[in-house]
Amino acid sequence: MDGPWVGTWRPHRPRGLILAQFTSPGPQYFIPGTTGYVGHNPTKARAPAYSFRGSKPPAVESCGPGPCYAVKPAITRKGKYVAPSAHLQGRPRTKIDITPGPSDYRIETASRHVFKCPPALSIASRHNPTRTDRTPGPGAYMLPRMLGPNTVYTSASPCYSMAGRSQRGRFDEDLAKTPGPAAFPKVPVDVYKTRAPAYTMGVRPKPGATIAVKPGPADYSVGRVTLIKPQAPACTFGIRHSIYTAPLITE
C-alpha cells in the first residue's frame, strides 16, 4: 500500500527484510572495515598511514643566508645537474688488409693434384751414415778415489778441517766492551790550564798601499777642558816651610 507523500518520499511496502523486524542486536555487531587506521580488520593487510601536520612557525633567528645568495638553477640536492651532451671525436681509421691477388699463387704445381700424372721422385743428397762404433776409450773411465772421506770400498782415515780462530773465548776478549785509550780524543791543554795568549801573524803590507793616518798625542788639546768642565785646572805656587820651624802657639 502506498501512503501519502511525506515531502519528497512516500512510504511503500518494503521489498525485502529489514533489521528492525528481527530481535537480534542489529547493526551493533559488524565486520571490521578495511579502510582507515582505527578499527582495521586484523585479517587484512593494512597500508602505511601518514599523519599530516601543520607548518612550523617561523624561527626567531634564521640559520640560512637568506635570498641574498643566489643559488644557480643547475645546483640540486644531489649535485650539479648537467644536461646530456655528445662528445665529438675523430673518425676511426679504417684498417685495410692487403690480401694476395691471383698472380701471387702458383697454379703449375696443382696439375698433379687435378690431373693424372706418373709418379715423380725427388732426388736428395745422401745422408751421413750412422756410426755404430762409438765405444768409450780407456780415458773415458775413472777409477774410484782412494783418498779422502768419500771412498767406495776402502776404509778412510778421519778427516779434519782447518778453521779460523774464533773471536769469542780468547784470552784477549773484552767482555765488558770498554773503549780503549785510542777511543778518546786528545784533550787540549787550555781546558784544564790557563790559556796562553794567542797571536795572529798578519801579512806585510805592500809598498805604496794607503795607510790610514791616525792622530798622535800632539794632536789633542788637553788644556781645553772647559768644554766638559766649568774651568781649567789652576795651580798656585807657595813657599816651602822648614821642617824645623816651631809651630805658632797662641792663646
Results as ranks from 00 to 15, higher is better:
Gly66Thr: 02
Pro65Trp: 02
Ser166Met: 04
Ser55Asn: 08
Ile98Thr: 12
Val82Ala: 08
Arg93Thr: 10
Ile96Gly: 00
Tyr141Ile: 13
Phe115Gln: 13
Thr109Ala: 13
Asp104Gly: 13
Ser122Tyr: 10
Gly64Glu: 09
Leu143Asn: 09
Arg131Tyr: 03
Gly148Lys: 04
His113Ala: 15
Lys80Val: 10
Ile98Ala: 12
Thr154Leu: 10
Val82Phe: 06
Phe115His: 15
Gly139Trp: 12
Lys95Val: 14
Arg134Val: 12
Gly169Thr: 06
Lys72Ala: 03
His87Ala: 14
Pro149Lys: 01
Pro84Cys: 00
Leu147Ala: 11
Asn128Gly: 12
Ala163Met: 15
Pro119Ser: 10
Tyr160Asp: 00
Ser122Pro: 03
Arg145Thr: 12
Cys117Phe: 09
Ala163Gly: 14
Asp104Glu: 15
Gly101Asp: 14
Ile98Asn: 11
Thr76Pro: 01
Met146Ser: 06
Met142Thr: 15
Val71Asp: 00
Pro144Gly: 09
Ala124Ile: 08
Glu108Gly: 09
Asn150Thr: 11
Arg165Cys: 03
Ser161Lys: 11
Asp97Tyr: 07
Arg165Pro: 03
Met162Gln: 04
Ala124Arg: 15
Ile123Trp: 07
Thr135Ile: 12
Tyr153Cys: 04
Gly137Pro: 03
Gln89Leu: 06
Arg77Leu: 10
Gln89Arg: 09
Arg126Phe: 02
Asp133Met: 06
Pro48Phe: 09
Val82His: 06
Ala86Met: 09
Pro100Glu: 03
Lys78Phe: 04
Asn128Thr: 14
Thr94Gln: 11
Pro67Thr: 12
Gly139Ser: 15
Leu143Tyr: 11
Ala70Ile: 05
Thr76Cys: 04
Ala163Lys: 15
Ile123Cys: 10
Ser166Lys: 01
Lys116His: 14
Ser166Pro: 02
Arg106Gly: 01
Phe52His: 02
Leu88Thr: 09
Lys80Pro: 00
Ser157Ala: 12
Cys68Pro: 00
Gly164Gln: 07
Ala49Lys: 04
Arg126Ser: 05
Ala140Phe: 05
Ser55His: 04
Arg106Pro: 02
Ala163Tyr: 13
Arg131Asn: 13
Ser55Pro: 10
Pro48Asn: 14
Ser157Val: 05
Ser85Gln: 00
Ala163His: 14
Ser103Cys: 04
Tyr50Gln: 05
Ala49Arg: 03
Gly54Asp: 12
Ala70Gln: 05
Ser62Lys: 03
His87Leu: 15
Tyr50Gly: 02
Gln167Gly: 10
Ala59Arg: 02
Met162Ile: 13
Arg165Trp: 02
Thr154Gln: 07
Gly139Asp: 15
Asn150Phe: 13
Gly137Asn: 12
Ala83Pro: 08
Pro102Met: 02
Pro149Asn: 02
Ser51Gln: 09
Lys95His: 13
Ser122Gln: 15
Thr135Cys: 08
Pro102Trp: 03
Lys56Arg: 12
Leu121Gly: 07
Ser103Val: 02
Pro129Gln: 06
Val82Glu: 09
Thr132Glu: 13
Ala83Ile: 04
Ala83Gly: 01
Pro144Ala: 14
Tyr153Phe: 09
Leu143Ala: 14
His113Arg: 14
Gly54Cys: 04
Thr135Asp: 10
Arg134Glu: 11
Ala86Trp: 08
Glu108Arg: 06
Gly164Arg: 08
Pro136Gln: 13
Cys68Tyr: 01
Tyr69Thr: 04
Ser155Gly: 02
Ala110Gly: 11
Ala47Asp: 13
Pro136Phe: 10
Pro65Phe: 06
His113Glu: 12
